[in-house]
């Protein structure tokens, strides 16, 4: 299998007072033709990683190989073959969509026509509109279009949907899925677990500058002890003695128990075994149930299980 990106023991220290150690030995391997996601909270080191891979930031240590080439030796050839959408770029306000794309297209030897790319990201109607007049979602689609205009073999999208409304997010997802179907290799970063679950073939969960889990979304979820989540709360008006969370581990099929604000959260293998046992136990001890919900475990639960923190600090 072809490897599109390989990096080993990547390190980055931002000089300053105090210096910031953004990457602490990060390993990554992205296969050709897959959509690979880097999932992590703010400040995890996603942007730093991506910008090193894009050749616009110098690593402090480690090895990087992109499309079989190395930065510093084959820069021009590499730039011809990658497409980039940075986290938050504000393109020139007073150029139109088409002028912007023509300009970016002119930098590439095998640049595509602006018309074709506008159609691909659904901006044909806006071709004569100034960038400053576009909505947030349209600007983001233009940023993706600028990444596509060079007909790249490898596409980097840094937080492509952050800050967008649900409909705009879905439009970006459609573009990414379409690209993947046509065999492009995509590396995207996100702090939305649903985005990673929906779009990515494989995901690396990154925290504090390191990969802490790697696999397909379903593998990662399966690695949790218990693929189902049961959340419930008890009301305390009948209170012979407080409910001890750890004692619930004794129930059949229950794998973990955690206190959450406003209730308890259990991961279980089989809800149809665990829930009757839970109800029986609560009834026996005189606790009333005020809330009960079950759902499939998500990447969010994987992150919480690994770090004890949530992806997004609400």
């Amino acid at each position: 299998m072809d490897i599109a990106i390989r990096c080993r023991d990547l390190r980055k220290v931002y000089e300053g007072k105090p210096p910031v150690e953004a990457l602490r030995g990060l390993d990554l391997e992205v296969r050709a033709g897959e959509c690979f996601g880097i999932l992590g909270p703010n400040g995890a080191g996603k942007t730093t990683t991506v910008e090193i891979l894009e050749g616009i930031l110098q690593a402090s240590g480690g090895e990087v190989e992109v499309l079989g080439l190395r930065w510093g030796r084959s820069d021009r050839a590499l730039r011809e073959r990658i497409g980039v959408s940075l986290q938050e770029t504000r393109l020139a306000d007073k150029l139109t969509v088409e002028e912007t794309l023509d300009l970016f297209g002119s930098f590439y030897e095998k640049g595509r026509s602006a018309l074709e790319v506008m159609a691909e990201v659904g901006l044909t109607e806006k071709r004569s509109a100034w960038v400053v007049k576009l909505s947030g979602g349209q600007r983001q689609r233009l940023a993706v279009a600028c990444a596509l205009i060079g007909n790249p073999d490898l596409l980097f999208l840094d937080e492509p949907t952050t800050g967008l409304d649900p409909q705009s997010r879905r439009q970006i997802w459609d573009i990414v899925r379409d690209l993947r179907r046509r065999g492009r290799t995509i590396l995207l970063t996100t702090h939305y677990m649903d985005e990673a679950e929906r779009l990515c073939d494989r995901v690396a969960v990154v925290d504090h500058g390191r990969v802490i889990a790697l696999g397909t979304p379903s593998e990662l979820i399966a690695s949790l002890k218990g693929e189902h989540v049961v959340e419930f709360a008890v009301n305390g008006n009948v209170e012979p003695r407080p409910l001890d969370p750890q004692s619930l581990l004794a129930l059949p099929s229950v794998r973990s128990v955690r206190s959450e604000p406003g209730g308890l959260l259990m991961t279980v293998d089989e809800p149809h075994v665990a829930i009757p046992a839970l109800l029986e136990r609560l009834g026996r001890e005189g606790h009333g149930l005020s809330r009960l919900a079950t759902r499939h475990a998500s990447l969010e639960d994987v992150f919480v299980a690994l770090t004890g923190r949530r992806l997004r600090d609400e």
């Binding site: 730039r79 980039v84 940075l86 938050e88 770029t89 504000r90 060079g150």
Partner: peptide, 10 residues
């Protein structure tokens, strides 16, 4: 960050 974006092209 437009300068950075341009540097990422050839």
């Amino acid at each position: 960050r437009l300068l950075k974006r341009l540097v990422a092209t050839p």
